[in-house]
Nucleic acid binder design. Structure first.
Lengths: 204, 204
DNA sequence: CATCTCATGTAATCAGTTACATGATTTC
DNA sequence: GAAATCATGTAACTGATTACATGAGATG
């Protein structure tokens, strides 16, 4: 499980509560990873059982006590071991491509519509990455626990995300052009005058 | 769940057993989706309960009977409805990027090593996509159930996968260059003559 | 004689999301 | 007075993988 190691990595910067870990996720690695609090809390517990982190309870008045986790020496070793261990290339798992794959089964116009919509969504994500997220990294230089070197690695991950979105958008454009060409070659959807009105069934 | 619709899409070509569906996965959509038999069989069952597919049992001698599934009219309607419905952009979930993100915590040489290894793995996937998979599409034109139009959509999905791998490889190269430059700027890992030998602990 | 293909499933486990439950303090 | 922030968790469910179980026929 990568989450365990992601948590170790985060806590290795400095001690943190589960809640703070979640904030870290939302403000920094959210473009390639995410985790809910309901997953973070139990994972911290098992990490503690494994001896990779140590818990310290900070008593508070009139509100829930804070469980502050700190990385242990074995935790740090385990994290570094994992960091250098080989990672098989992540496979693409994209539900949108399922739609495209079966595109013959719908009118070309409809496929063009979903392609355009997908492109727009991807553009939104890209825009967000290129503005908000990049600025966030720039600002992080000023903060403690996040020196310039650290933000170099942070931007590397962001640049991959950006490259991916750009490639996706380009692909949408190329696909739309191709389909428009193909549409001209074989105008199946046009209302033909005589006979054989192709109704829904038995196209297989 | 996308699997349900993927199965509907596959079965909409022509009736099939669960085993054949798995073969279809392995030979055509494997570059962006996968499913195990242990997931396919129960899913076909629920699809049947929903009335989207109909099961017919083909008796066989001396071996297990074949459960052949055929799409129903409602199944086809549901599939087309889903096909045109909007798909939110898939988010990148890449464990390798977690390693890079925390790259400061390891010697630069080690990060360069994992980057190179990742690049090589991505190149293998790319090579496979550009040879085997492309050929497979070309050959599919001759087969029944898979006309030229169908293979157009098939190649579209493959081209996205290829574009993604290429972008990934480029990014690996750029990242390695950047890190090599940065390494020259700040040679932290070099054996310094005097004092302060930085041993493992308290770097946070 | 071993391995692959055909053909079906169940059980256990893992990873992740959504919903539920609680409650004080701060900000708008 | 409502909503967001801080802070903890559990329970239910979904989606996917791995392991288990069975067994005939074909290929090498």
């Amino acid at each position: 499980m990568s989450l365990k190691h992601a948590l170790l990595g985060i806590i290795s910067y400095h001690e943190m509560t589960g809640y703070e870990v979640k904030q870290f996720f939302d403000s920094s690695v959210q473009h390639f990873w995410n985790a809910e609090l309901s997953q973070i809390y139990p994972t911290l517990k098992t990490l503690e059982e494994n001896g990779f982190v140590a818990k310290r309870v900070e008593l508070q008045e009139n509100r829930l006590n804070r469980n502050v986790y700190e990385i242990t020496e074995t935790g740090r070793e385990e994290f570094l071991r994992w960091l250098r261990s080989p990672a098989p290339p992540a496979d693409l798992r994209d539900p949108f491509l399922i739609r495209i794959f079966f595109g013959v089964q719908a009118p070309v116009e409809d496929v063009l519509i979903i392609l355009r919509r997908q492109m727009e969504e991807q553009q939104k994500v890209l825009a967000f990455s290129e503005t908000v997220l990049r600025d966030r990294i720039r600002d992080s230089d000023k903060h403690p626990h996040h020196g310039t070197k650290n933000s170099l690695f942070w931007s590397l991950t962001l640049e991959l995300a950006i490259a991916y979105r750009r490639a996706y958008i380009d692909w949408c454009e190329r696909s739309m052009s191709l389909l428009e060409e193909g549409f001209l070659d074989a105008p199946v959807a046009e209302p033909e005058p005589a006979a054989a009105a192709p109704s829904s069934a038995e196209s297989a």
